[in-house]
Design a protein around this nucleic acid. Structure first.
Length: 257
DNA sequence: ATGGTTGCTTAGCAA
């Protein structure tokens, strides 16, 4: 069994000590990270390798940035959407672990419906769908894990009425996400949890975490052959507690490979 | 309707 986690760390430099302690404590076999917010020359590669992880990263200054950490050998690293369009934002990195293609994604936040950033988000989701179509078959073992910045349905929102039509919840975003998953991906969390009230992100403001006003926007999607091998899925709320947390909690999937 | 917080970069933006 291997444990795959996805975690938006909100700056790997600000989160370094917490992240190293988390790796040591939780021992994920594979960790997909988002919002590392560092250029590749400043990525804290050695301290991660010292914990026994191989690592591939794709960053930029100040914003975005993604990485994959693995205790098993990482093969065939690839960075970016590589679709010929403008790809200046570091939001996707991929590598193969134990025959599984693992893709760490940081979907654009989108700011608010009607903005340029929102349009970019919708376009990015359709580029992700084409990325999968062009490279894989839905019967291949593929994991797409990351911060999707979309709550798939109202179970994933603490106050659906308040969030209706808002960023992270609007119908076009949900359609954009389901268009990606309709290619052949299953939300591993929903293989094991039916109900609402499970969240992966809480705004830093207004005591959102203590009040549990969160959204489930971080996901580990898997293709069908891996869905059959998925023996567990959960959100690591402990990592959101205490002093100096990321605003996101890690999300885990366990695969019997 | 606004503001609340954190991180990057240094006043303002992004989330």
């Amino acid at each position: 069994m291997i444990k795959i986690a996805t975690w938006n760390v909100n700056s790997i430099r600000a989160r370094k000590e917490r992240m190293l302690a988390w790796l040591d404590d939780r021992q994920p076999d594979v960790a997909c990270l988002q919002e590392t917010k560092v250029t590749d020359d400043a990525f804290p590669e050695q301290v991660i390798r010292d914990l026994g992880y191989e690592v591939v990263f794709h960053g930029q200054g100040g914003y975005n940035g993604v990485a994959i950490l693995s205790r098993l050998p990482l093969e065939h690293p690839a960075r970016g959407l590589d679709d010929g369009d403008d790809d200046a934002q570091a939001r996707l990195v991929a590598a193969t672990v134990k025959g599984v293609r693992v893709i760490s994604v940081y979907v654009p936040n989108g700011r608010a419906p009607g903005t340029d950033k929102y349009d970019y988000k919708l376009a990015w989701l359709s580029r992700l769908r084409r990325y999968l179509e062009a490279r894989f078959d839905p019967d291949d073992p593929v994991v797409v894990a990351g911060d999707f910045n979309v709550a798939p349905d109202d179970r994933d929102v603490y106050d659906p009425a308040k969030w209706e039509g808002k960023i992270l919840c609007s119908e076009p975003e949900r359609r954009g996400l389901s268009d990606v998953s309709d290619w052949g991906l299953v939300d591993s969390f929903r293989l094991h949890q039916e109900g609402g009230g499970y969240y992966s992100w809480w705004d830093y403001r207004m005591l959102s975490f203590p009040k549990d006003r969160g959204l489930r926007i971080d996901h580990v999607y898997v293709t069908r052959p891996l869905a059959r091998a998925c023996t567990g899925a959960y959100i690591d709320r402990e990592a959101r507690k205490g002093k100096g947390p990321s605003d996101h909690a890690p999300v885990f999937a366990e695969l019997d490979l």
